[in-house]
Design a binder for these strands. Structure first.
Lengths: 338, 338
DNA sequence: TTGAAAGCGGTACCAA
DNA sequence: TTGGTACCGCTTTCAA
């Protein structure tokens, strides 16, 4: 790092001690106005910036928040959360360290360790697995806020999404349009979110006297292909329902494509729903009815919680569950078959 | 922050000075194996993590890199860059501070200042404007790597993309398919990238004896709408070409939608190209022929440059220009009209 | 109104 | 082989 001016540098030029300079710059009451003026002018000319690492070291504070996610972009919604976290953190004078684990538990752990070493005050973790013991070990005494669906609701600090409710909303919407043959397309349950969606779906179907059909294909990492495979599987068996709900938007895009390849129209022949409400869901030619998860709110809540954890020395256990909401677009419509 | 064990904590338990502990943990040659063993065991039990802020303070080093972008997700490609930066930085034991400016020059400057205060060794900035004087002022002596297209090629450290070449490639592809009536849809030129694309396009067209048609509508922040508007404008004037190249993928999605609303098929009636090769460009129902910008490579190069800037005390001026490449998908085809 | 001393958590240097 | 001392840049306390 190139040498940057310090309090001493300024002090030398102003003929003062670095202590006086420190006080002057922070408008301490016991420094004369004239001195303050002079010191500030010199600091400006030098382009002085306080070394927050040193300040934080002495004050035993921190001005950074850590965040670790499975991936940024593509088929995830973490970018939505990050944007909020970044904005809210900046408003509180905090910087955000972000790490992408590329869905690797090893890298996830590594990011946590590095950030803890770099003195983040809190870690906001959207873990790539449902087993967070390694993450917790890596974080030591640094408080962790688990975010997203994959974490067990028993964690001390967690901001979760009610995916069972997603199932209820999806069935309510589709059944309301007259659909009775509804299938859920999911992946192999790598984590809790899938299981929650499945049970919410089954429950809602059964409570209406409908029989739930669940098709599991592929993995979250290749959701698009999984969606195509799911449809093929249903077609092979000759069991194509009048509506499908997909565990993710990305999967729904794959499903819609497979259906169109077979000459089926959406929503004329079959209705399709997704989950997450990613950006592209509202692209006009996709226009996907989906379940919106309040990522923006979760991001804001995460920072609010992070700040209070930092200020209260990590004594604020908090669990908050966010509710998904229905986002109706063009991919679902009334049932025309029986 | 909750109290974390320090070298002194360990020393007290081991009956040693914090100095001996420090050496033992770093495997110094002048500490006995037995002592090392004992110290490491205690450190493990306590879950000790070195305070990198303190270490860096003394060693006058840093272990963080800063990155500021206009936005993450949606219609930008910065998430692609970030993923690479995160991975490459982690491999070098660096954490990345990421800030989203939400396309606001004020917030951009603020992020830079905060990160500089927090002692990042370098800043990788994809500025939201072409005027980077404020950013440079905010960074002071901390080296900055400008990335993306909006920065003037004269900056000391910059990783740019050759958007003029994009124009050449687009025209080459479309002309090769027999198209002679080709329009470029762009926005109001808020920054240099647009101007470069326009001039590359015009040049390539003229060198083939074709007359370039450029339509400017809307802004980058609402690219989808801009794409729809551009098509409407061409239709109103009855001047619909046989192919359009859009300044961004997102804009192309809007253009394709507007065309389909008019009952035109792609690429049967008209070919459409985009720019950037964002994730959704390869979604099967979008299948957009576009120009791929090597974001992954740029991310890697940015970190490599960042590390050398940190190690060489900011003495490595470097300009690198990356070439876009053609990504042919289903939205372009042979010209069927004359 | 100003500054000397101490300390935050770490590492380098040198003496014991 | 070990530990004392000094210092990185900053702030707080207390004495001048």
């Amino acid at each position: 790092m190139p040498d940057r001016p310090t309090l001493k540098t300024i002090g030398k030029l102003a003929g003062l001690s670095h202590v006086a300079v420190s006080k002057a710059l922070r408008d301490a009451p016991d420094i004369s106005a004239a001195t303050k003026e002079r010191v500030k002018k010199i600091a400006d000319e030098l382009g002085y910036t306080p070394n927050l690492a040193a300040r934080n070291l002495y004050l035993r504070r921190t001005s950074t928040i850590g965040m670790v996610v499975p991936a940024i972009g593509d088929s995830t919604a973490y970018d939505l959360i990050f944007n909020e976290v970044s904005a809210a953190a900046a408003a509180h004078d905090f910087c955000v360290m972000l790490g992408s684990s590329h869905r690797s538990p090893q890298l996830e752990e590594r990011h946590c360790r590095m950030m803890v070493g770099n003195q983040v005050g809190v870690l906001i973790v959207a873990s790539c697995t449902s087993d967070v013991s390694r993450v917790k070990a890596a974080c030591g005494t640094t408080p962790v806020i688990f975010i997203g669906g994959k974490t067990s609701p028993e964690e001390t600090c967690s901001l979760l999404c009610d995916y069972r409710h997603s199932g209820a909303l999806a069935v309510e919407h589709l059944a309301g349009l007259g659909h009775t043959q509804i299938a859920l397309l999911t992946y192999e349950p790598e984590n809790l979110t899938i299981l929650q969606k499945e049970s919410g779906f089954s429950e809602a179907m059964e409570s209406r006297g409908l029989s739930p059909r669940i098709v599991r294909t592929g993995h979250a990492a290749s959701a698009l292909q999984a969606g195509m495979d799911g449809i093929e599987l249903l077609l092979e068996k000759g069991e194509l329902p009048t509506a499908v709900w997909c565990a993710s938007d990305y999967m729904a895009v794959g499903a819609m494509h497979a259906l169109r390849l077979r000459g089926l129209s959406i929503p004329g022949d079959i209705s399709v729903m997704g989950h997450d409400d990613l950006y592209f869901a509202r692209y006009p030619d996709i226009s996907l009815t989906t379940l919106h998860t309040p990522m923006e709110e979760m991001g804001k809540a995460a920072v609010a919680l992070a700040i209070s954890l930092i200020e209260q020395d990590g004594l604020v256990p908090a669990r908050q569950v966010f509710q998904p909401s229905l986002e109706i677009r063009g991919s679902t419509g009334p049932c025309r078959r029986r």
